[in-house]
Amino acid sequence: MSATAIYPQRLWSEVKVGDVLPPIGLAVEYARIILNAASTWDYFPGHHNPEYARAQGQPDIYVSTIFFHGFIDRLLTDWGGPSTFIKRRRMRMIASVHPGDTMRAEGEVLRCHRDDAGCGLIDLDIRINTARGLCVPASATVRLPLKPGERLSPPNNTSSGPAP
């Protein structure tokens, strides 16, 4: 692709409370869980050793926290477009996801608002389910462009944190 490629990007003004995000799904296999552990350097044995996972009280190895992060972010940017900036993502893992499961993520717009700098923000409710029910309730705040071509989060337009 070239620098002039045009990818669909949702604008803040196009979103309204109650909008439903297109759901996404993913089949979870042993290889996906284990490759994710490798890609994230999360070598905790619950993500690659079935015997260890069973000793933990799990039926089998399970998807890692970081995998859920990526899956939620895909839901958000598939819907918003590549210039969607994820400002905050909160999630609670109330049930594990194992090989043989199919994960499904869905979301809904809860609030459209502007921050002190005038940026366009969207608050969303998110849920990840398997056939057994809800696994990960989550929420997120994303920033969307106010107009086409707006660049999000330029380096000099975000606050600095405390010095360590």
Binding site: M1, S2, A3, A5, Y7, L26, R32, L35, N36, S39, F67, G70, F71, D73, R74, T77, D78, P82, S83
Partner: peptide, 16 residues
């Protein structure tokens, strides 16, 4: 691994 096709991660020219 999450089948995420976001061009911000894949299209070097565009993302740059």
């Amino acid at each position: 691994l999450s089948e995420d096709s976001n061009p911000a991660y894949w299209d070097r020219q565009w993302a740059t």
